[in-house]
Design a protein around this nucleic acid. Structure first.
Length: 573
RNA sequence: CGGGGCGUAGCGCAGCCCGGUAGCGCGCCUGCUUUGGGAGCAGGAUGUCGGAGGUUCAAAUCCUCUCGCCCCGACCA
């Protein structure tokens, strides 16, 4: 393609609206433009990258035995009412009415639609297993869209749904997808990690998220430094403490702690460490108010808490509720004397002795409090976030923490949807059985953004070869006949060799072309200059390393092919 | 939804406090020169100052309402 014939509106300055690297660079490189919050137009360059990612996804899905279909973006409320998700999904579901006042939504995911199809069309075990996927625009009315394509309200997703006749088959389908995902993200040139994950709104029995490792990631993951365990921190299990305190119990005292509300303030005032302190968090669920005891230096894990309580709605209680429940303002809640409230404690709290806790009275705390002696009826569970240095729950070392971008998520669904919607088939015995399902998502547009987060420098994007919008950026530096002719020859030769070339045929200065090329980030830059050409040489530059190779034009096609092959470190593929 | 901030030329911003009829840099157009890392000179075009209402002789500037966007948090395959 010739630059002069493509819409590639690069920007010199960083747009004010973008903070994140990928968002900024995609805008500056002329790949995307915003239409509304979280809604973007993909310009030709951006679309080419999406198509590359889609191509890899499609190949690997097909290879794994899945078949492509395409479902509608709009779906009727009735289907969503069958599974209860019309109410359950909440505000994130983009809803609208047609002219007959019938409720519809824009699909955020398609379990209902696919299950509706399969229950109609699949009646025999002979038709199973089945795995159908689509690559499609999805809509989620995110509370806060951000970071460009990273968290849009409209985005492109590959979603696959497997149907099996039994649990065993479903596990196999799941494993196939898991393996396919490994290949997909590896082929995209990403550094990533599969981690155990929570199943959230989709539901099901177990799941793994595929995380692209990046500082800017919105997810926190933990992994064992000595083995294979890795999990989203939402999900990561924490082992019970290895040893309990053996300190002799001291008598309980109530002391004045004027104005000391936060852990830091109380610790400073009483001259104790956060490890000796217990914070009492009051949570509100639709059913009840619960008090949660967490050690001062730990963080409560609301996902674990929700699971334990069997609720999906959970929030910290407002100050009035706290006051009404504890008889004290926020900052002085404690387990001692707390009435009419279920009390939960994290495992680490259960082994503490002589702890400090709120006094349920303004400006007072208890010192040397002890479970069972001073407060009882406490349910102990794993309720905190895992921390750096915790022992891995699989015993393979200690935990470390990293940030990740969730680009894929595989779920074992079981019969949640087939049961709700009656997707059944007849087994060889003529018995009716429910399909066992799995679902598997990949954020295609997010993957493109994640690739930039992981592959860039101060000058711009550095595309991994397999998803680069172009392989070679051809930069003739002069409008002279000799240079232009040589450019045309190389452009044609490379094109015939199946290499995608972006030819900067603009009458711009060298600096402008170099800077745009660095910004756009094709893996190889082919520079044709007047002087070099007079000596029979052109230059091939690796975007990632900046390494320049001078070579005669005749050698370009072969050299480029070699460089683009995935073994060459200079292109970083 | 809570907190913070921003809407002025295609992009980045100043002007607003203290009202007097809009400016800077980059980009864009024309010409000449230049031509290996965002050229120089000369000339030129471009704004419902997010929108509506109000105050005033006069509003980008003050007041009210409203819409949009960004950041932090809560939330989320």
């Amino acid at each position: 393609m010739r630059t002069s014939q493509m819409l590639i509106p690069t920007l010199r300055d960083d747009p004010g609206e973008a903070e994140t690297v990928s968002h900024r660079l995609m805008l500056r490189a002329g790949m995307i433009r915003k239409v509304a919050a979280g809604v973007y137009t993909y310009l030709p360059l951006g679309l080419r990258v999406l198509r590359k990612v889609e191509g890899i996804v499609r190949e690997e899905m097909n290879r794994a035995g899945a078949q492509e279909l395409l479902m509608p973006i709009a779906s009727p409320a009735e289907l969503w009412r069958e599974t209860g998700r019309w109410d359950f999904y909440g505000k994130e579901l983009f809803r609208f009415k047609d002219r007959h006042e019938r409720d519809f939504c824009l699909g955020p995911t398609h379990e209902e639609v696919i299950t509706d199809l399969i229950r109609r069309e699949v009646r025999s075990y002979r038709q199973l297993p089945l795995n159908c996927y689509q690559i499609q625009t999805k809509f989620r009315d995110e509370i806060r869209p951000r970071f460009g394509l990273m968290r849009g309200r409209e985005f492109i997703m590959k979603d696959a749904y497997s149907f099996d006749k039994d649990e065993e088959g479903a596990k196999l389908s799941y494993q196939k997808m898991y393996d396919a995902y490994q290949r997909i993200f590896a082929r995209c040139g990403l550094t990533f990690r599969a981690v155990e994950a929570d199943t959230g709104l989709i539901g099901g029995s177990s799941s793994h998220e595929f995380m692209v490792l990046a500082e800017t990631g919105e997810e926190t993951i933990v992994y064992a430094d000595g083995g294979t365990y890795a999990a989203n921190v939402e999900r990561a299990e924490v082992l019970p403490p290895a040893e309990a305190s053996t300190e002799p119990l001291r008598p309980l005292r109530k002391v004045a702690t004027p104005g000391a509300r936060t852990v830091a303030e109380v610790c400073a005032f009483l001259n104790v460490s956060p490890q000796q302190l217990v914070k009492t968090l009051l949570y509100k669920t639709p059913k009840e108010i619960v008090a949660v005891l967490i050690r001062g230096d730990h963080e409560a894990n609301e996902v674990k808490l929700k699971k334990l309580l069997g609720v999906t709605d959970l929030e910290l209680a407002d100050p009035e509720t706290v006051a009404k429940t504890t008889g004290a303002p926020v900052g002085f809640a404690g387990p001692i004397g707390l009435k009419n409230v279920r009390i939960l404690a994290d495992q680490s709290v259960a082994v503490m002795r002589n702890l400090v806790a709120g006094g349920n009275e303004a400006n007072h705390h208890y010192v040397d409090a002890n479970k069972d002696r001073d407060f009882a009826g406490v349910q102990v569970a794993d309720l905190r976030n895992a921390l750096v240095g915790d022992v891995s729950p699989r015993g393979d070392g200690r935990l470390k923490i990293a940030k990740g971008i969730e680009v894929g998520h595989v779920f074992m669904l079981g019969t949640k949807y087939s049961k709700a919607m009656g997707s059944a088939f007849l087994d060889p015995q003529g018995q009716e059985r429910l399909a066992v399902m799995g679902c598997y998502g990949i954020g295609v547009s997010r993957t493109a953004a994640a690739a930039i987060e992981q592959n860039h420098d101060a000058k711009g994007i550095i595309w991994p070869v397999p998803i680069a919008p172009f392989h070679v950026h051809l930069l003739p530096l002069s409008q002279s006949d000799a240079v232009q002719k040589q450019a045309k020859i190389l452009y044609d030769q490379l094109g015939q060799a199946g290499i995608e070339v972006l030819w900067d045929d603009r009458d711009e200065r060298a600096g402008v072309k170099f800077n745009d090329a660095d910004l756009i980030g094709a893996p190889l830059h082919l520079v044709i200059g007047e002087k070099g050409l007079a000596q029979g040489q052109v230059e091939l530059k690796a975007r990632r390393t900046g390494t320049v190779t001078k070579l005669p034009p005749a050698e370009v096609p072969v050299t480029v092919k070699t460089r683009l092959s995935d073994k060459d470190p200079a292109t970083g593929s």
